[in-house]
Amino acid sequence: MALVTATSAAGGIRAPRPAGLKRLALYPALIFTAAFFVLPLAVMLCISFTLRDKGVTVDWFTFANYRAFVERGDGVLLQAMVNSLEVTAVVTVLSILIAYPIAYILAYRVPARWQRLLLVLMVLPFWTSYVIRSYSWLLVLSENGIINRLLTGLGVIAEPIGMGNNRGATILGFVHFFVMLLTLTIYSNLVQIKESYRRAAADLGASPWQVLLHVTLPLSLPGVAVGAFLTFVLCIGDYITPQILGGSKELLMPQAIMRQVGRTADFSMASALSMILMGVVIIAFLFSARRLRMDRL
């Protein structure tokens, strides 16, 4: 420690020794996070091992809730998890496919001074709440909505068709949101790639497609990965979009959790399902973190 101080003093810079106030300043945030984030999760973990029947705790340590996740109602809860994973996977892939060209065109085809403005405009609806965004899609998809009007007007369909209340509507609502998120993360990655790399490849005879495939795309993978991970986390945990757009014919995991809270007030089961959902996110995180490192090698 003394050595470190001595060397930095020799370098002409006073060692940033954290004094009283500067050290104490860290604690309010740490204590707050411990009390209102870590502790509640720990409480949930504990509750998930208790068994409740009609509001009374009948068993203090059991895996019954986790077993019920697989067994209850012919696996209806397990199916909710499968549905969630399917929807999230489709949403993530579709969003990347749509967002990448947007980010690419913004970064390389749009004049530099317009880029910022166009980007801000492009992701403006990102800042609506889930409730209002989903409601807006309900307007678009409704039987008298603009799409049905257009299709009947053009004679594509004779009668308006119900487009809400299914998985397709949920996916549409999600993709709309995450295209904006991914545009942001991919764009900010693309503008950091040195122009000289792309120019060097072109000078060496690579066609624009080859430059894209062998230079730009590999270098932009971190931006894609960050965006994809955020998409995964936010998508799999959202209750509102599937509830408003998907209806309740098919349950996704957050809807299944809300049912435990709402109908039966089974906090134990809700906790167990939440823990399972969190576990899936953690596995996804570890998986993507490892993949990302492998891609960099």
Partner: peptide, 20 residues
């Protein structure tokens, strides 16, 4: 530690607080 809440769904954070 401080950034961790970002990776947890709002729903789970809400339930944790509710139960606690």
């Amino acid at each position: 530690f401080l950034m961790a809440p970002i990776s947890v769904s709002y729903l789970i954070i809400a339930l944790g607080l509710l139960f606690t």
